[in-house]
Design a binder for these strands. Sequence first.
RNA 1: GACCAGUUAGCUCAGUUGGUAGAGCACCUCCCUUUUAAGGAGGUGGUCCUGGGUUCGAGCCCCAGACUGGUCACCA
Length: 563
Amino acid sequence: MQLSELEIIRREKLEQIRNLGINPYPADLFPVDTLTSEIKQNFEEGKKVVIAGRLMRKKIQGKASFGELQDSEGRIQVYFNRDEICEGEDKTLYNDVFKKLLDLGDFIGIEGTLFETQVGEKTVLVKDFKLLSKALRPLPLPKTDAEGNTHDEFNDPELRYRQRYVDLVVNPKVKEVFKKRTKLYNAMRTFFNERDYFEVETPILQPIAGGAAARPFITHHNSLDIPLYMRIANELYLKRLIVGGFDGVYEFSKNFRNEGMDRTHNPEFTAMEIYVSYKDYNWMMDFCEKLLEFCAIQVNGTSKTTFGEHEIDFKAPYARVTMADSIKHFTGFDITGKSEDELRAAAKDMGIAVDATMGKGKLIDEIFGEKCEGNYIQPTFITDYPKEMSPLCKEHRDNPELTERFELMVCGKEIANAYSELNDPIDQRERFEAQLKLAEKGDDEATAFIDHDFLRALEYGMPPTSGMGIGMDRLIMYLTNNPSIQEVLFFPQMRPEKKAVALNDEEKAVLAILKANSPLELNALKEQSGLSNKKWDKTIKGLTKHGVAKVEKTDDGLFVKTA
RNA sequence: GACCAGUUAGCUCAGUUGGUAGAGCACCUCCCUUUUAAGGAGGUGGUCCUGGGUUCGAGCCCCAGACUGGUCACCA
């Protein structure tokens, strides 16, 4: 590995620290008793504190210095005075360890007392400090000026996502996003647990990837010698638990879909799914709007949130519009009672690309997606979806062409999807068979396998149940005003960083000679390689460049050795 | 998948018609005992994303590729 000048300097300092008898990575606990936030909130002149964190600023002014210590809560100014730290004659701890050997980013522990400087900055007067962990790589160091402008911000998205640990250290706003994410989870758990709904865990490795239509990741179990799929949804398992007698179950489900990536799609993402027995989708709408109002307030302190140019209010209740009314409102076309051909002609008139394979449901869905969906900025329930789009949803009590389904639209995108769950096992089997036929015809949105065990469960009887799924990543994007899913995932999926260093044939051959006999005199190696002058030159340069071989000059001549 | 943009020091970025690669911060040396994005003086640091090509000469022009971001398409 090629080290930069800065990294070499830090490694040399590490050696010097060891030479002073200081362990740069001590094992023993450090008795932290205060966080920087507590110091700021309950400031008390002269109070003794023990704090720890990264040294993030170091301004040496001769025999005294200011610094900044960053812990999990933020930063506090620290003041290093030579004679406070070194009471005797030996000033090594200040002059050498602090001034020369400590770098920005190093973890240190500090014992000190609180005071305010002449300009009124709350500060820890350092009485003693201890190196807790040496940082060998330099951190980027954004700075904020008096007007709040950030200079040299660490803002390259590629570096930020690939090295999220660095992003979190130097960009405090990033940490806030993830704190809110966890607050959202906690708020939901509180809301559900208060109602005695039961948090469960269901299989991620599934023999049939059911519950949604998406391409799964496939893997293989060696001792069973069967394929297994990473779940694309957990719906069918939660319903089995309702069959088993739980009144309400929920799960935060990491789902995996082997599809394209963009700023709203990551191959793994989180859905919250909840199923409650003896309820229907009307009840679930009431539940959903109360839940989201509660969550927004828990996360942001208010039901209002800003997303891009929009201000959204999650305060309940939300408007409820049937899909037919929505289409009538935005296109003037009434879909009720229309035949497939009439729908296709209408869609075509609206400029929507249609083809002969599209059924009624698909046509309606296209019209809605094209002409209506994007208009719903404030939270709005769209209800009563066409039957063929919803194979797990109960038929509408008033209209056999529709289902008892709603989606919650916010900023033109779906964030929740809910049904009165289909619990008629015969109907369910027929819907699965219909899906199977669609899949055989080549519709890749249709589910190609029938989960017979799920049908068996339904045959034992599932109570009337309403279920809902919420896209957690999308919801937290709204609540933190982030237009990209990568900003709300700690470690978004990225392409592999680098291809492995590829050596060419000459380089491989020379390396093989060298490995058998290292170090080797340079000219001897050259002769053994049998390469022409030019080839040799290129090859040895390539090897040193890749850091696999090293040329050293001694009094006896030039020697090559493996790195 | 298509199109557009980007990739230069640890970080953020300049880089003129193709002619010895720059700044700020960071880093190193020296001075400085209540400063605060930035005290003073001096200095070090480069795979200009990779590989080809054009050229006397390429960070810059041409071709191919990698990665990233954006828009669109596809996909819940």
